[in-house]
Amino acid sequence: MKTSVERLTGLFVELTKRSAGLQPALTTPNPPTDAAKPELAAAQPSAPLPVTHATRGFDFDATVAPADVVTAAEIMDREGFAIDAVTGVDWIAQNEMEIVYDFFHPTEPVRAVVRTRVPRAEPELPTISPVFPGANWHERETHDFFGIRFAGHPNLKPFLLPEDADFHPLRKDYQP
């Protein structure tokens, strides 16, 4: 079946519902305070947001719970998406780390973004490298830069940084 934004939306709504039933919603130690910036506060797992490629550069934007990223990656894998990138964003004001998974589709013009947030103090979530082996390097890089631990990752050694690096330069509180 051809992948489309509608189909993906359906799948992710289902995923969010199932996950909400199974576990309590993601607890954020410091709830978002910056109410003036609604897009920054979209931390809770929610139904995918409508986005348009022309203004944002992607067609699909879903936020899932950290425990669901593997399921989300499996959905993307089944739909024939390719891994584009995995990266983090350090939301220091909200005391959270955002992990962004980018996917592109080799044959359909659909660009999808899956996000999740983990508490800054304990940035840990499961790895998706068994689903997408290409995520291995992206996750290592994210671990390098943000100190986000990917549980189950086969090789979380420093990658781009020197092999004895114990700092995470893209954290906003990083002091060189």
Partner: peptide
């Protein structure tokens, strides 16, 4: 393999997939 690793450009086109950002996006 290209899909699983996110390889693009001539690598994926050399695998028979007509993926080109100029067309896809």
């Amino acid at each position: 393999l290209c899909r699983k690793y996110g390889a693009t450009g001539p690598v994926i086109r050399g695998a028979g997939v007509a993926y080109d950002v100029r067309r896809a996006e």
